[in-house]
């Protein structure tokens, strides 16, 4: 693919960002990260308080990507088969089976939106593991494929009633976990409250230009993109050191206040996590019109691609968000390149 084509796709990506930023204001960083994730073909987990715009953000992206869109709400009584099929009694009085949200769009499914994923049971998480990792599902004596599917999920970490912690194996399937916080800008906060266009979410999302990207071309382009952006030996060594530091932060002099670093980390970043980080870093370099990955590109995606993969001692799990943030910042400050 020529540089011109890379540039054309970059313009499309930036257009998508512009469209989404019109709808969800003050979230430029999460928007950039989600764009990165779409082009790196990774699943996204949004984390934040209630009513901060997580669902609106994902719906806006979904409209811009195009393709099939399905959504399911996580509840405590949700079972895996609810994702695959529905059963009901028809007008003829006989039982009928229809496709569930995963199967309804067939291979054209581009976005599967799992709202409040942590309210679903571990059995549901288990099914999702395979769908996310292999983009396929066995049902009705057939294998179903979703080659273009990206899972967008969100969760509220503050509320603990009737929720299930997402296991580390499931978390690891997500390329990024992106925190969504309320913007700290008075003008934006005022607009969110008083500007009536933000009151009707459906109408707001409808203002996003549809099908900015061609969802069925993203896989092919992503492969080409990954092959076009170089990573020098120095950068590879830098990434390797970052990886080692997530496993043994104390070896790099990284400390977190009020934490026994010898007991903190049970497991650092996984190889899959590091490869996802590099994929995301390459996309970030491409979005910034660079032909090679720089440490800056890694920094841009380091927290969102690594923090949710770290496995801490149970005693520190309640504080994992702040500890992970401080530890990863410490790692970036401690590891140098060259």
């Amino acid at each position: 693919m020529s540089d011109a084509q890379l540039a054309d796709w970059r313009n499309l990506a930036l257009s998508l960002e512009t469209e989404v930023n019109k709808v969800v204001v003050g979230q430029q960083t999460p928007v950039r990260l989600i764009t990165t994730s779409i082009f790196a073909r990774g699943h996204v987990l949004l984390e934040g308080d209630v009513g901060v715009g997580k669902t609106t953000l994902l719906r806006a992206f979904t409209r811009g990507i195009g393709g099939g869109y399905q959504r399911i709400e996580g509840t405590i009584d949700l079972m895996p088969n609810d994702l695959v099929y529905h059963t009901y009694l028809g007008e003829d009085g006989k039982p009928h089976v229809s496709a569930g949200p995963l199967l309804m769009s067939g291979e054209n499914l581009s976005v599967f939106f799992f709202n409040e994923i942590n309210r679903a049971r571990p059995q549901v998480h288990s099914l999702l593991l395979r769908v996310m990792a292999e983009r396929s599902l066995s049902a009705f004596n057939a294998e179903h494929y979703f080659p273009h599917m990206i899972v967008f999920a969100d969760r509220n970490q503050v509320e603990k009633e009737e929720t299930f912690e997402i296991p580390s194996a499931a978390r690891d399937r997500f390329m990024m976990e992106i925190p969504i916080v309320v913007p700290n800008d008075d003008d934006i906060m005022e607009a969110l409250v008083f500007d009536t266009k933000f009151h009707n979410v459906d109408a707001l999302v409808d203002t996003v230009k549809p099908d900015v990207l061609q969802f069925d071309e993203l896989n092919a382009f992503s492969g080409i993109l990954q092959g076009s952006i170089e990573a020098s030996d120095t950068l590879k060594k830098y990434a390797l050191n970052l990886w080692k530091a997530t496993k043994a932060p104390l070896d790099y002099g990284v400390k977190v206040s009020g934490v026994d670093m010898n007991r903190l980390v049970l497991s650092g970043a996984s190889p899959r996590g590091m490869s996802m980080m590099l994929r995301a870093a390459r996309v970030n370099a491409w979005l910034n019109n660079r032909s090679a990955v720089l440490p800056d590109d890694i920094h841009a995606v380091f927290h969102s691609t690594i923090a949710h993969r770290l496995v801490f001692s149970p005693v520190y799990e309640m504080r994992r968000t702040e500890i992970a943030r401080e530890m990863l910042s410490g790692i970036i400050n401690a590891v140098s390149a060259p």
Binding site: N333, S336, A337
Partner: peptide
């Protein structure tokens, strides 16, 4: 040239007490 750049990076890192990058 590489050695020189590396030495200067070390100077920045030592002065800052942390790794200094463009960002």
């Amino acid at each position: 040239l590489k050695q020189a750049i590396s030495a200067i990076h070390l100077g920045f890192n030592t002065t800052a007490g942390m790794s200094v990058f463009n960002d």
